[in-house]
Design a protein around this nucleic acid. Structure first.
Length: 963
RNA sequence: GCCCGGGUGGUGGAAUUGGCAGACACGACGGACUCAAAAUCCGUUGCUCGGAUGAGCGUGCGGGUUCAAGUCCCGCCCCGGGCACCA
């Protein structure tokens, strides 16, 4: 199968009409109008005040609409036809809304910092900036050629100094804030200091503020800041030479980019206290018009669990089933739990089951062996410093272990630590184990094990011969094993007889009364690891004095610009190495002389850079006011674009992008926005009111005998004959279009063969915007044909003259026109561009059947098409004598008078089967309708001679008889 | 394993609240134009029977509710995505 586009109609063909709408004419029209648009600032959108407030079209007093795409990485391979799908959709919508009375802001920038750009630069050996700028130029050209109506004045890149200056400024806002747990908002750190100074609050670590020296106070504040340095187990990826956020590591323990191995290792890194916002990030999802699947993914990621803390002597556990505490027959700590080493006795208790000891002579030995079994041997030689949990632990070992099928639950391993603790509800001593099925990072890193009501505990109890006590009565037909459902509580003293929910409430009351526990809520989400050992990112606006406690640079020092390193590439490191930030090689840059109040001193700069996500957390705000040198965005401008007229949540009115950002970008961005909201820098709590995930464009791909992909455009044959590449048979598969599958089709190929308008129309007609869709180059011609027919209904192909007539359309055509207008309006408003196109096609098909197109219909047709195919629409609009750019004309309106007809067709059913369609007057009475229906010969044939049991008329819908 | 989506002609898809299943398009077939081909235009196109009016069947499978089910209910199957020892 040859999937390459048909050659463009040769312009020189003698018998092709001279003024046919073909690829060459489309190209000429498109580039001409693109020049006109650029020169007249057609897509420049006014702000209510400030730098961009010039408003030649007088639209600033209209209702506003902010339409946005997820901005792209300036990738070196340019665009394929899958990329612009979302951009076209937002463009059509933006143009439509502009024509229906909105002041629409639509632009696009570049997410130009970060791993992909740097990895590409690393391969080509060029400075990332060179690459990045070339790529941005290529992509901008491709998008402009597509006719996207962006306000180019607002097209920021995250790598612009004038942009990342404000990324750094926002970082400082976050750094200089703390989360007030009572008000549940971020507040400036100086307010916390004031409360400490006034004695209204004492540091949470129990120290006395008044007696602390300056450095100690700065240490205390570190524990409060929303951006802070912490020694934490982080995901270290030696191959990429950087640490990664949890969100950037796959469940297999590989880096999301490049599939490199990732190791857990304790490092001092920047963290963002996103966990403080867990509850609000969860609750506010309800305010958003987002796909339910994305909300679900965020809810799962945040992972709220309601339960209780219960103290078993010194060990605090978290459980969602405090009602089962009487069934707790043993206890499990995460292997790296700090209390393990405190609790471990010198020798095994008498009569310890040999199964529990792992064959070790002492508990300490058993623990050490177990830890080494699940963790990699530490080769750095300073094992003494490696307290539990600080050993390098590849995810692989932690994840594997079953050796069986991936779906099966993992075999339970573990070892007794020789200690017992007392169950506070019944004073029973229970043994303490460590096992890797308990994770240090969740809850308290310790559980009470209730095998009767928990699958994992059941398996563990089976393995180690531990007792099982049921505390919920299973139903009679229950087949055994752990019972997770509701039922009557048994074997639980004062809880007996209650159901599970009541028992939870009762036991939490009891625990609180006796001081050995309380009800609590735990979240799965962790704080966000925010530093990277990379060159191509925003430098931190942070310096250090000898204390090693970070100090914010004053605003006057912003931006902290990246030094022009030659040796910028990160080192590829082996698995045992430590991270090494490339900026450490910028000797001169790393030290800075400053006077921060106590005389000029030399400070060391922070050498890490921010992660890719930093710029994308807030770029939508900079679109609003891209050149503002005094603020990240002017307050009035921000409120104009980000507030709802009805005073609800506000934010970007429509945000379109791929579902792959469901938890990364979209969660970080919401977090930053909420901090900015708390601090009064933005007017609403959420950045993106409405989110739509566009589908992917997929395409056939072909693999040879070795399984390698071969270029799809050079494969021959079809399904009958089989497919071949260079004479060798290949197999056909299906997948997301891209470099990997070698099945890309570029927009440029489409421009040459059909033109940008055809490409736009085709992509919008393929199906619903949120659905994946298969690319079929041979089908593109259908969209081209529609445009040709539209052209021919308005313009004479041989003379190039208008053929429309100034006659009023006949009644049925006019009705069809107004039905189309009403339908297209509704469809475009709901982003149903595929059905809007179908309706326009139907109307145009009516026109091809009549001699001459009435002007009234031609004009409406062109206006309705203009959001979809703006170039052709401009051209036809001009030929029709229209004033100004078609993009500024009002969208046609349907007249209600033409939406109702004198007569209409009504289906008639007998016993639920369609027997006729009758034409009746709209104002016919029910009796008249029934009479007309019965009179139909075919209906009559089916009811004649039988008893009519029932007949009914569903007004406007249907007549039905039951015999 | 759990949680979301989704299964409609040869293909992509359409079908407000249950109310004419298959809009619109691709492809295929037939015709016009042409020396010929491409392009363009016209016609046919869910399957089966039939000359035709028409009849029967038909939205993954099996049941059910209803005058009426792609749409609602119950039980399955398959495909795609997310999460995955989270206590």
């Amino acid at each position: 199968m040859s999937d390459s586009p048909d050659a463009a109609t040769a312009a020189g063909d003698s018998d092709t009409p001279r003024f046919r709408y073909d690829a060459a004419r489309a190209s000429e029209i498109e580039t001409r109008w693109q020049t006109v648009w650029a020169e007249s600032g057609t897509y420049e959108t006014p702000n209510p005040s400030g730098w961009l407030s010039e408003d030649p079209f007088g639209v600033v007093d209209r209702p506003k609409l902010f339409v946005m795409d997820m901005f792209p990485y300036p990738s070196g391979s340019g665009l394929h036809v899958g990329h612009p799908l979302g951009y076209i959709a937002t463009d059509v919508f933006a143009r439509f809304k502009r024509m229906t009375g909105y002041n629409v802001l639509h632009t696009i920038g570049f997410d130009a910092f970060g791993l992909p750009a740097e990895e590409h630069a690393r391969q080509t050996g060029e400075h990332p900036r060179v690459n990045t700028e070339q790529n941005m130029a290529v992509m901008t050209r491709q998008m402009t050629r597509l006719g996207l109506g962006h306000d180019r004045r607002r097209a920021v890149a995250t790598t612009d100094e004038s942009f990342y200056r404000w990324t750094q400024w926002i970082f400082l806002q976050i750094f200089d804030s703390w989360f007030d747990p009572v008000a549940k908002i971020a507040r400036p750190i100086r307010e916390l200091i004031a409360e400490f100074d006034a004695g209204e609050r004492q540091p949470s670590n129990g120290r006395d503020w008044a007696s602390l020296d300056d450095i100690e106070r700065r240490e205390v504040l570190q524990d409060y800041r929303l951006a802070y340095l912490a020694e934490a187990p982080v995901n270290w990826c030696p191959a990429l030479g950087t640490v990664l956020a949890n969100e950037e590591v796959t469940s297999e323990g590989l880096s999301e980019r490049g599939d490199h191995r990732v190791f857990q290792r304790p490092l001092r890194q920047w963290m963002m206290r996103i966990t403080a916002y867990a509850e609000r990030l969860l609750d506010d999802l309800d305010l958003l018009d987002w796909p339910e699947s994305v909300k679900t993914m965020q809810r799962n990621w945040i992972g709220r669990s309601v339960g209780a803390h219960i103290n078993f002597d010194s060990i605090k556990v978290f459980t969602t089933r405090p009602d089962t505490v009487f069934g707790a027959t043993y206890m499990v700590l995460a292997p790296e739990h700090r209390l393990v080493d405190e609790l471990v006795p010198a020798v095994w208790p008498e009569r310890t089951d040999p199964k529990w000891t792992g064959g070790a002579l002492t508990p300490s030995e058993a623990i050490a062996r177990y830890r080494n079994g699940v963790a990699r041997t530490d080769t750095s030689g300073n094992g003494a410093d490696h307290v539990a949990g600080h050993a390098d632990k590849p995810y692989e070992t932690a994840i594997s272990g079953s050796g069986g099928d991936s779906g099966e639950s993992k075999d339970k391993t573990g070892v007794f630590i020789g200690a017992f603790v007392v169950n506070p509800v019944n004073d029973e001593p229970i043994p303490v184990f460590i096992s890797d099925y308990v994770l240090m990072g969740y809850g308290t890193g310790a559980i009470m094990a209730v095998p009767g009501q928990d699958e994992r505990d059941w398996e563990f109890a089976q393995t180690f011969g531990l007792p099982i006590i049921r505390t919920v009565q299973p139903p009679v037909d229950f087949r055994g094993g752990p019972y997770l459902g509701d039922g009557k509580i048994i074997n639980s003293g004062f809880l007996d007889g209650l159901n599970v929910n009541d028992a939870k409430a009762a036991i939490i009351d009891w625990l609180q009364e006796h001081g050995c526990g309380d009800g609590t809520v735990t979240y799965r989400m962790r704080d966000w690891l925010f530093s990277r050992q990379r060159y191509w990112g925003e430098p931190f606006p942070i310096v250090y004095d000898p204390s090693g406690i970070p100090i914010a640079l004053p605003e006057t020092e912003l931006p902290v610009t990246l030094p022009d390193l030659i040796d910028w590439a990160p080192r590829v490191l082996d698995d045992d190495s430590d991270p090494e930030p490339p900026l450490g090689r910028a000797q001169d840059w790393g030290a800075i002389k400053l006077d921060l109040g106590d005389g000029p001193q030399i400070y060391r700069r922070e050498l890490n850079t921010m992660p890719q996500w930093a710029g994308s957390c807030w770029y939508y705000l900079r679109y609003l006011d891209p050149t503002n040198e005094n603020a990240m965005v002017d307050g009035d401008v921000e409120r104009y674009w980000m507030s709802d007229a009805d005073g609800t949540v506000g934010g970007v009115d429509l945000y379109v992008g791929g579902v792959e950002h469901a938890v990364l970008h979209l969660l970080y961005s919401r977090f930053w926005h909420k901090v900015l909201f708390d601090l009064g820098h933005v007017g609403g709590p959420e950045p993106f009111k409405r989110l739509v995930n566009q589908g992917y464009i997929q395409a056939w791909a072909y693999r040879d005998a070795r399984g390698s992909y071969v270029p799809a455009d050079r494969v021959e044959g079809d399904r009958q004959t089989g497919f071949t590449f260079e004479g060798e048979p290949v197999t056909r598969t299906f997948g997301k279009m891209g470099k990997g599958l070698k099945n890309s089709v570029t927009p440029d190929e489409m421009y040459t063969a059909y033109g940008a308008d055809t490409l736009r129309l085709y992509e919008m007609s393929m199906g619903p915007i949120d659905q994946d869709r298969p690319w079929e180059t041979r089908s593109v011609v259908g969209s081209m044909r529609l445009l040709q027919r539209v052209w021919r209904n308005i313009v004479d192909e041989t003379s190039g003259k208008l053929t429309v007539v100034d006659e009023t359309p006949d009644d049925s055509l006019r009705r069809a026109l107004h039905r189309t207008i009403a339908g297209v309006r509704a469809d475009m408003d709901a982003l149903r561009f595929n059905t809007a196109i179908a309706k326009i096609t139907e109307l145009n098909n009516l026109l091809t059947r009549i001699e001459r197109t009435p002007r009234e219909v031609a004009e409406a047709l062109v206006l309705m098409l203009s959001p979809l195919v703006p170039h052709l629409a401009e051209e036809l609009w001009k030929l029709l004598g229209g004033q100004g750019s078609v993009t500024c004309v009002s969208f046609p309106e349907a007249h209600p008078a033409y939406l109702v007809a004198d007569t209409f067709d009504l289906p008639v059913q007998v016993n639920g089967r369609l027997r006729a369609v009758i034409t009746i007057a709209c104002d016919a009475s029910e009796e008249e309708v029934l009479m007309a229906a019965e009179a139909d010969p075919n209906v009559n044939a089916h009811i004649a001679g039988r008893k009519l049991r029932r007949s009914m008329v569903v007004p406007g819908r249907m007549v039905t008889f039951v015999v």
